Simulated assay, not measured.
Amino acid sequence: MPRDPVSFVVGATAAQVIGGMVPQMSPFVIGGLMDGLSLSERDSGFIVSIELLALAVTATTIAPILPRFSYRRVSLVAVVLALVAQGGSIFSVSLGWLAVFRALAGAGEGALYAVSLSVVASHCKNPDKVYGYFQVVWALVSVALFTIGGQLTAAFAHRGILALIAGVTLVLAPILLLIPDDRAKSGFRTEADMAQASPSLGIMTFAAIVLYLTASAAIYAFSAPLGERAGLDTTAVGYVLTIASLIGLAGAGVATVVNVRWGRAIPILGFSVGFVLVALALCLWRSPTVYIVAVIASVVIYYFSIPYLFGLAAALDRNGRWAAAAGSAYLLGFAAGPLVAGSVIATAGYAGLAGVCVAITAAAWGLAVVVIQRLSWSGAPPTLRHEIVMRIVTSNE
């Protein structure tokens, strides 16, 4: 099988980074708003939540109709909107206008995030592998963004971190021209490559991604308090997260190499079990050594898991509509995680958080397994399905 076009992969990766930068850098954005505009935790969280909500709503809204338009044109319009909104946010001193600009930025970023997933699903022969490349790039980019972002936030508050986001967006914007200027009707993937799945499978995949990301984000959002419970200070936790991002390359690399060689069921079971063990270790033990190992393992598992979840969505629809919707599911789960974790910790403590994360992960795994099984059945050739049915009938007789 020929390799996927490099230009598509590079252009889609640029759209992925621009679209996902704000969720990745949200801790610095919140801290910068608190320092630069003297906003409370509630108001700062409100501003970031507006942007994340705009991201998710835009990705959800655009997903069904995205294949009808030129991916390149949608990307260019979206990046212009994001850049204008970033500039307005940097110089805004009013909470109301800041909320408006962040919502506009979220709309542009959400469109780019959806494009990055949809163009891969519709144009690449092996979406799972390309989604693995995304995670490799994220692991590398995150180290640089965390380091520079912390320094700029400390020096210039919210204007520093927003300027960094705008600068990276501006640098990557020309690469979006590598995205194809056509609709998702190209013949890069034939009908034999995948079955056209029913909407129910798409809904179950959407729910599985939301649930898994909710549990993952719940642990990530409280990684600092968990570290303090284990006896580490905030600076030490920052170092642990930076090291974890570097080692997280291993997870992305394994996902890219292994790909779907063993199918999707085994890798999804593997990272689900791994995340359950990580959640139990972080929430139930207070050892610094256990914390460091568990946090590093959680990042490795995260980078390993995302390509398979996005790849499962890409397998549902040859036009990439469910792949684009998967981006919305990711963002919704990412936004819901801290809310769920905070509520659970307030009522049942960290032991309760461990139990909830285990239950949510089990539910996500169950939904994913059902989708995989039904896809395997619907994707079988008619003659094979007939043979299977006849064997079942014969055995019953």
Rank of each mutant, 00 (worst) to 15 (best):
residue 272 S to K: 04
residue 207 A to T: 01
residue 258 V to A: 15
residue 315 A to C: 10
residue 297 A to T: 01
residue 309 L to P: 14
residue 229 R to C: 03
residue 304 F to L: 03
residue 239 Y to W: 15
residue 261 R to Q: 08
residue 274 G to W: 04
residue 229 R to E: 05
residue 238 G to K: 07
residue 247 I to T: 05
residue 283 C to L: 01
residue 318 R to L: 15
residue 227 G to N: 07
residue 303 Y to L: 11
residue 302 Y to A: 05
residue 306 I to T: 04
residue 228 E to N: 15
residue 219 I to F: 01
residue 307 P to Y: 08
residue 270 G to W: 11
residue 222 F to I: 00
residue 231 G to S: 09
residue 219 I to V: 05
residue 239 Y to Q: 11
residue 319 N to I: 03
residue 317 D to W: 15
residue 314 A to F: 13
residue 278 V to W: 10
residue 256 T to W: 11
residue 246 L to W: 08
residue 305 S to I: 00
residue 273 V to I: 08
residue 293 V to Y: 09
residue 255 A to K: 07
residue 276 V to G: 02
residue 306 I to E: 05
residue 205 T to H: 08
residue 282 L to T: 00
residue 250 A to V: 13
residue 259 N to M: 06
residue 220 Y to R: 07
residue 277 L to E: 06
residue 217 A to K: 03
residue 283 C to E: 02
residue 286 R to E: 04
residue 227 G to F: 05
residue 251 G to M: 02
residue 307 P to K: 06
residue 286 R to P: 06
residue 235 T to R: 15
residue 279 A to F: 05
residue 306 I to C: 06
residue 276 V to R: 00
residue 286 R to W: 08
residue 218 A to T: 01
residue 219 I to E: 02
residue 296 I to E: 08
residue 254 V to E: 02
residue 285 W to D: 10
residue 288 P to F: 07
residue 217 A to V: 00
residue 255 A to N: 09
residue 274 G to M: 02
residue 297 A to R: 01
residue 302 Y to C: 03
residue 249 L to Y: 02
residue 268 I to L: 12
residue 225 P to K: 12
residue 299 V to M: 05
residue 280 L to E: 09
residue 310 F to D: 01
residue 241 L to G: 07
residue 216 S to I: 01
residue 259 N to T: 08
residue 237 V to H: 08
residue 311 G to T: 05
residue 294 A to C: 07
residue 249 L to A: 07
residue 259 N to W: 13
residue 259 N to C: 13
residue 231 G to W: 10
residue 253 G to F: 09
residue 266 I to K: 10
residue 278 V to P: 10
residue 223 S to I: 11
residue 221 A to F: 05
residue 321 R to K: 15
residue 281 A to R: 04
residue 300 V to P: 00
residue 235 T to L: 13
residue 285 W to I: 09
residue 219 I to Q: 04
residue 280 L to I: 09
residue 295 V to H: 09
residue 257 V to G: 14
